[in-house]
C-alpha cells in the first residue's frame, strides 16, 4: 500500500531527468593531441618487433649518408641508421614518462589528499614542506642522483617523479578541498564513514578528471626532461638509442649534416606537443571551473 501511494506521487509532474548540460569542450585539442601521441606510441610498438636496420650497428663507410632506399633518413656520424634509432629511441621517453607520472602520482596524490583531510595546522605544514620540495629543480636532482648512482633510465624516472610530485600534491589538495566542502561529503561523515572511505569513495572519483589532466601534462614534462638529461649524458646510457643523445651526437656535425639533429628534434617536439595538447583538451573538458552549466 505504501508502495502504491509513493510510486504514484513520485511519478507525478516532475520534469524529466535534467540532462547534463556540461559543455563538451576541448574536442579539437583532444583529437590533435591524441593523434600525435598515437604516432609516438605506434613508433614504439613497431620498434619492438621491427626496425629497418639494427639501430646500434655502426657502418664506418656509410657515415653521414643522405637518405636512400637503404637508410630512409640517412645515417649519423657513426654510420647508424637514423630511422631505426628514431623508432627504437621512442621507447625510452614513453617509459620515462610513464614511470615519472607513476612515481609522481604515488607520492603526490596521497600527500595532497592527506594535507586536505587533516586539520588545518598539520595540513599547512605538509604543504609548506611540499613547497620546499617544489622549489628544488627536478633536473638538478636528476643530475645529483645520476652523479651518485650512475646515469640510468631508473634514476631519471625517480628524480623526475620526485620533481613532479609536489605539483600533483597541490592539485590533488585543492580538488580534495572542493570535494570535502560538498554536502555529500558531510552526508558521508554524518553516516559515520571514516576518512579512508571518504578518500577512496568520494574524493578520488571526483578529482579523477583533474588528475588525468595533470598526468598528461606531467608526461610531456618528463619526455622533455628525459631528452635534456640524455643530451647531457645523464639519462639513458649508450648503446640504447635515445632522442636526447641523438641530438647531442648530431650537434658536432650540425654544420655538415643538419638532418641528424632535425629528426630527433622533431620527434621530441611531436611527443611533447601531443601530450600537452591532450592535456589542454582534457582540462577544457574536465576542469569544473570551465564547465558551463545552467
Amino acid at each position: 500500500m505504501t508502495t502504491d501511494r509513493a510510486q504514484t506521487t513520485a511519478a507525478q509532474s516532475e520534469p524529466p531527468a535534467a540532462r547534463s548540460s556540461r559543455r563538451r569542450g576541448g574536442t579539437p585539442l583532444i583529437i590533435t593531441g591524441s593523434a600525435l601521441v598515437a604516432v609516438v606510441l605506434l613508433m614504439a610498438a613497431v620498434s619492438l618487433v621491427w626496425t629497418p636496420q639494427d639501430p646500434t650497428a655502426t657502418d664506418a663507410v656509410n657515415r653521414l649518408a643522405s637518405p636512400s632506399a637503404e637508410h630512409w633518413l640517412g645515417t649519423d656520424g657513426l654510420g647508424r641508421d637514423i630511422a631505426s634509432m628514431l623508432l627504437a629511441g621512442s621507447r625510452v621517453p614513453l617509459m620515462v614518462g610513464l614511470g615519472t607520472v607513476t612515481v609522481g602520482f604515488l607520492i603526490g596524490v596521497p600527500i595532497g589528499i592527506t594535507a586536505a583531510m587533516t586539520d588545518r595546522g598539520a595540513g599547512m605544514w605538509i604543504m609548506r614542506g611540499n613547497d620546499i620540495l617544489q622549489a628544488f629543480p627536478a633536473l638538478l636532482l636528476a643530475i645529483v642522483l645520476a652523479a651518485v648512482f650512475s646515469p640510468s633510465t631508473l634514476t631519471a624516472i625517480i628524480a623526475l617523479g620526485l620533481g613532479l610530485a609536489p605539483g600533483v600534491a597541490r592539485v590533488a589538495r585543492s580538488g580534495t578541498l572542493q570535494v570535502l566542502s560538498r554536502e555529500y561529503s558531510l552526508a558521508a561523515r554524518a553516516a559515520g564513514r571514516g576518512p579512508l572511505y571518504l578518500a577512496v569513495r568520494h574524493v578520488l572519483p571526483n578529482i579523477r578528471g583533474i588528475l588525468i589532466v595533470q598526468a598528461s601534462v606531467g608526461f610531456a614534462i618528463a619526455i622533455l626532461a628525459e631528452a635534456a638529461l640524455s643530451y647531457l649524458g645523464l639519462g639513458t646510457p649508450p648503446p640504447a638509442a635515445s632522442w636526447g643523445r641523438m641530438l647531442q651526437d648530431g650537434q658536432s656535425v650540425l654544420q655538415i649534416a643538419p638532418l641528424t639533429v632535425l629528426w630527433p628534434g622533431a620527434a621530441v617536439a611531436t611527443a611533447v606537443l601531443g601530450f600537452n595538447l591532450l592535456g589542454d583538451g582534457l582540462r577544457d573538458r574536465f576542469d569544473p571551473r570551465m564547465e558551463v552549466s545552467r
Binding site: 554524518a190 569513495r201 572519483p205
Partner: peptide
C-alpha cells in the same frame, strides 16, 4: 550509535549526492 540514530537531509539535492556514485551506493552508504 549516533551515526545510526541520527541522520541528515541536506538542502541542495545537487550537492548532497556524489555524482560518481550509483543510487544503491549512495543510499547504502550509512
Amino acid at each position: 550509535w549516533l551515526r545510526e540514530a541520527m541522520q541528515i537531509v541536506f538542502q541542495d539535492p545537487m550537492g548532497s549526492l556524489d555524482p560518481r556514485m550509483s543510487v544503491t551506493d549512495i543510499i547504502a552508504e550509512p
